[in-house]
């Protein structure tokens, strides 16, 4: 049997993109309020990729990133990641904390700032998605690590890997003015939750 994700048609993909759009729109607004600066986002990309190819989507598995992970539980479950290049992480810290960084050293306080950013983005994304699908869901306490993007993303992929060889990623990029806050905000629903999402929207997966 082929993976159900590989049978999604263009319309079904656009539904996922729209959910991501609404969720990320709320997340961008929340981040704007926090930073007191206008944050824009791009229309999300929906990627359906095999586990072997996933490092191409995240811009190289060895890329050093600040990664925030939230586990999503409830009627729809999955994993959420905020990944920032260290340059972007410093840029955000500068705006939020008002101090510029020369090196790549981050204090415990800095890390908790990113956990809080993850909390705010994740919480607003999920509440929008929850309203849209009428399904209850909540995020775990965020965890943060500075390491290779592939190693960090692997934490979310193992939830998928037990059942599937294909991951669905809804990927959003954020902007501040003309600066691309070089970041990815990923939602990876668990395989059985993909079906729940479509059912809740009355889309027949056939």
């Amino acid at each position: 049997m082929t993976d159900p994700l590989l049978r999604l048609n263009e319309f079904q993909l656009s539904v996922l993109r729209e959910i991501g759009n609404i969720g990320a729109g709320h997340a961008a607004t929340a981040l704007s309020v926090l930073m007191q600066k206008e944050i824009d986002m791009q229309v999300p990309n929906v990627h359906i990729v095999s586990l072997q190819e996933i490092d191409e989507v995240i811009g190289g598995a060895e890329q050093l990133v600040m990664g925030v992970f939230l586990r999503v539980e409830g009627e729809i479950s999955g994993s959420m990641f905020l990944m920032l290049t260290l340059e972007s992480a410093k840029f955000l810290l500068q705006i939020l904390m008002g101090e510029s960084r020369q090196d790549d050293q981050f204090s415990e306080m800095d890390l908790s700032v990113f956990m809080e950013i993850g909390n705010i983005l994740g919480g607003s994304y999920l509440s929008a998605m929850s309203d849209f699908t009428n399904k209850q869901m909540h995020a775990s306490v965020p965890a943060v690590a500075i390491d290779m993007a592939g190693a960090i993303l692997g934490v979310g992929l193992m939830h998928i890997g037990q059942y599937s060889d294909t991951a669905l990623l809804v990927d959003t990029e954020f902007w501040q003015g003309n600066n691309n806050v070089d970041s990815h905000f990923f939602f990876l629903p668990d395989p059985d939750s993909v079906e729940t999402i479509f059912k809740s929207l009355g889309v027949d997966l056939g």
Binding site: L51, Q52, E53, I54, D55, G60, A61, E62, D147, M148, A149, G150, A151, I152, L153, G154, V155, L157, M158, G161, D165
Partner: peptide, 23 residues
């Protein structure tokens, strides 16, 4: 070698896998 993948090689090739976390 990608995630959840495997491969073989012979002299003088090098096998590489990138970004091992819990894997």
């Amino acid at each position: 070698v990608g995630m959840a993948d495997l491969d073989t090689a012979t002299d003088p090739e090098i096998l590489r896998t990138v970004g091992l976390g819990s894997c």
